[in-house]
Design a protein around this nucleic acid. Sequence first.
DNA 1: GAATTTCTGAGGTACGTAAATCAGAAATCC
DNA 2: GGATTTCTGATTTACGTACCTCAGAAATTC
Lengths: 340, 340
Amino acid sequence: MRPTVHDIAAEAGVSLATVDRVLNRRPGVRRQTVEKVENAVTRLGYVRDVTAANLARRRVYPLVFIIPSGPNSFMRVLESEIASAMARSGVERTAIRIETVPPFDPAAIVRVLDALDPKQVSGVALVATDTPEVRAAVDRLSDQGVQVATLVSDLPGSRRVHFCGIDNVAAGRTAGNLIGRFCGGRSGKVLVVAGSMNLSDHMDRAAGFAAVLGREFPGLDIVGPIETNDDADTVRDAVTSALDQVSDIIAIYNLGAGNRGLIEALAHRRDRTLSVVAHEVTEHSRQALSDGVFDAVINQDCGHEVRSAIRVLKAHADGISPLSEQERIRIDIFLRDNLP
Amino acid sequence: MRPTVHDIAAEAGVSLATVDRVLNRRPGVRRQTVEKVENAVTRLGYVRDVTAANLARRRVYPLVFIIPSGPNSFMRVLESEIASAMARSGVERTAIRIETVPPFDPAAIVRVLDALDPKQVSGVALVATDTPEVRAAVDRLSDQGVQVATLVSDLPGSRRVHFCGIDNVAAGRTAGNLIGRFCGGRSGKVLVVAGSMNLSDHMDRAAGFAAVLGREFPGLDIVGPIETNDDADTVRDAVTSALDQVSDIIAIYNLGAGNRGLIEALAHRRDRTLSVVAHEVTEHSRQALSDGVFDAVINQDCGHEVRSAIRVLKAHADGISPLSEQERIRIDIFLRDNLP
DNA sequence: GAATTTCTGAGGTACGTAAATCAGAAATCC
DNA sequence: GGATTTCTGATTTACGTACCTCAGAAATTC
């Protein structure tokens, strides 16, 4: 049986009330006595029964998720994952609110962040546009005691406590490695399509991709990246005209969203054998994989990301540091055959 | 606020004791009254507070993990994952015991299974050799009310409640797809190395691999599978002699263990460009990936598998069916660049 | 040494559920 | 219709922790 507060009180030779004061860092205990209790805790290997504690204190964690609105499939999947986390609110003692903001609009994010009442919110998770204003707003909120985590795209240099997402440089390298091998020694050009260079995830992927191609596949030259603001129609038009104008494109890497546009652009040309790698498993990309239009899709499990964000924000709100092992999000590679 | 048992008692117009009897399926309640309570439950949307319930009933789940002994790195990783689950026992209200048995020894598994006291064990997770004796022993245990889950390798047709592992046919297909593409249109032979055809995971992988190669890459012919009993030295010797005897091997798929032997066999021959795909991220395979000896490693997250097994066994012990979504184990593909 | 201030102990209630006891109501049997 | 059996209600204790109050001990100040 694991020890309880009663055991500690007995071991330390103090009363239950004193143990409680020490454990919950309440004032009114002499330094000496604090040490006696803390020694007893380590001697007995006491760990607080979090479930009993939460039951007793009727704690709820008010959390806010800020995500882009718009047709981006990945963001809609993310939203549905947050929704299903909301359904578990009762069990997990969370009170989750979703705030959607127009995509690529830093000012809108800042407005939402600044409108939050630090006393009413214990944590915020946001898909951040990487600009100074957003960073400043995050830091303001952090300073007021609100735990902030970035989701999907990071805000390096800010006072966010955690980034819930993948290592995007490694994801870009992975894409480079895949495309390099799929091209099997052929030479030619690789078209890179991106959403926005204001998103740190897109920037990182582009950098990782370029690094691998430059180092390991010198026969492949990069065209782009083209910026599309993650708009499918823009992607379609840009890819179509690139394929028309540049003759020796043998591979395409879409490191942003708008896969629908990419699929549409490729639908017309069955003539050439293009290696295509994209990101995020959605309705469209899943179909493209099984049709053989995409060769591989790199994915981040956004269900895992949302659950991780909640765990991390709760832990930080309680002053605990979360288990890093469980919070690392993997870079998934999906081919047609291992699609979940 | 979510409703409590008190609210239900009030809503149904019965006492707390009756609600408790209905919720916990204890006898002594008239059919009519049961319905009244159940209606109140659905009307109010009551869900039991599992943490409070566990607190009150001081429930612990005695679980047994049965895994092979021996030098197999993957199994040792699995063991360490179980060990870290044991460290969480206090929090998760489990009492986990590990039983190691000699690998490829069905009789040993049967002995351990039969020695278990059904009254003292609520669940068992085992890495099963797929033989009739083992299946019979599992069924006997199931009939005595012990929940059994298979781990890593399944026991199809048995009365196990769940398989905690990957879809190994799909894993084999994935390997086939990767090797096919990595070979980039070249023709030649692919050496397939397996551990034992008494392991259903190995059988499934071989089948999936062969299916994809036959259907999509007609230029590639399979040599093998060679059976090695997952012994590294056997793998080394078998691969070495196969490479000596068969001239046009251009790829190797090791669908079992013993990666160390494969690496040793390849260390001597830098002359040819072999595509190599293996299973499970371990110390050896990780090194081989970053050295460029292996091109890809297909992995199952055994930390996830162990955690899933615990959740599933606990849920079944309580007569609850677990959320299938969270319990699906992914087929991870790792290249050098997305190694965790 | 008296008056403070600071610390500590004892005791209680609460969280939501499980489980037990016991008394009494309702249904069933003879 | 009385005896039995089956059902139901009321009440209590417990789980491990949080948090509150109040009395009194100990240390500090004047």
